[in-house]
Write a protein that binds this DNA or RNA. Structure first.
Lengths: 206, 206
DNA sequence: TTCACACTGTGAATTTTGTAACAAAATACT
DNA sequence: AGTATTTTGTTACAAAATTCACAGTGTGAA
């Protein structure tokens, strides 16, 4: 399977390729792509190898074509439906983030333990009670969830998600979730990231 | 300098150690720490080596002592002041995130281009106009910033930050910032993370 | 006091990730 | 057509991160 780092970079390449396309750019060279994502030409070419799409010397890569191949790689010609659990501050921010960004990722429903939120439409997404999760996930064949609940609830909700067939979780709670090995969890750990910044910026002398 | 990955994990260890301490745990073994942060005992021991603090074979690591050493490593006996620029959805979520979590990181001021937000207190943090940034950063000797503005504004605001002495940026905008090499940038790229989850969870068969 | 035990600290092996180098391909120029 | 130029695809190499494996150590039971 493709290494995690490469997958991450492919996602970036595509984003910047789309911007370039908007700007009317038809083809790019590896060194241009490298500059966009702060990488090196060698790294870019190496990453693109796995797509099975070949650029041409002289003209580099055809932007539209390359995007198409990355789309195929990610299997996202179609819209991907995801759910979000935990409509607190971060949850709401994410709802608007994915609504505004015209990406192929769509939050089809959000859920919250707080029953008073159920039924309300928050940031364009209808909020449901936790009890409805089972049906909505099943009916829409949702496989991916965003978890933005407080740390104290994260594990128990993750259990519910897994139980109902969720296979991938983007976790914003500052906890390490225990899930079966066939479930993929990506942690977005803001405190940790912040501490990294503080540590390394202190090291960088003026 | 300590590798980035190690720094990230040290931050995690500390968080979980603090929780353990709250729970009245006095000492931990590497395999327990490993389980907490989803790692391996060997990895934990290797990471802790750089602290210069030694556990003992029988009792493992003294929790309080280990926390103290990680604190020293991060140089955070004192509170770290940071600023936040961009009081939109994500900005507000972060304000409340850092207000609620009783961490040693404190957002002392927030800024927004939108002058109508200036003067208002949003999520316990006073919002200032961009023009005030210079003075507040200088007066408080702030070295770290959270950037949560739209992608289109990110670079120009980053330039302002750098100009005013900011040396570390936690960037939530889906852009790669161009900064001098003595400034550290950590990107939190939610779309990319989401795509990783989708990719790898699809690979994981039921 | 010796033995067995459970764990640490750390060099060495392994795996993963990134970089460099260069032949082959496509174009433009003469 | 032949040559120079530019950039790719890929292989070989290097560096970094992780894991292994085991000697060393303190403790308590026999």
């Amino acid at each position: 399977m493709t290494p995690e780092k490469t997958v991450a970079r492919l996602s970036l390449y595509r984003r910047f390729l789309k911007i370039a396309k908007e700007d009317g750019v038809d083809n790019v060279y590896s060194h241009q792509l490298a500059e966009m994502v702060r990488s090196t030409p060698a790294q870019v070419r190496r990453d693109l190898m796995i797509l099975g799409y070949n650029g041409s010397p002289q003209k580099g890569y055809d932007v539209a074509e390359l995007i198409k191949h990355i789309d195929t790689f990610f299997n996202t010609e179609k819209i991907i439906d995801v759910i979000l659990v935990g409509v607190g501050n971060i949850g709401r921010a994410l709802l608007s983030y994915f609504r505004d960004g015209k990406s192929h990722i769509k939050i089809i429903a959000s859920f919250d333990k707080d029953e008073t939120k159920a039924g309300r439409v928050i940031n364009n997404s209808r909020c449901y009670a936790m009890d409805d999760l089972k049906n909505i996930v099943a009916e829409n064949n949702v496989k991916t969830a965003i978890l933005s609940v407080p740390a104290t609830d994260a594990q128990s909700i993750a259990d519910i998600l897994v139980e109902n067939g969720i296979r991938g979780i983007l976790n914003f709670a500052p906890t390490r979730l225990k899930v079966p090995s066939d479930v993929f969890v990506e942690d977005v750990d803001i405190t940790m990231n912040m501490e990294k910044v503080i540590y390394f910026s202190a090291g960088k002398k003026k």
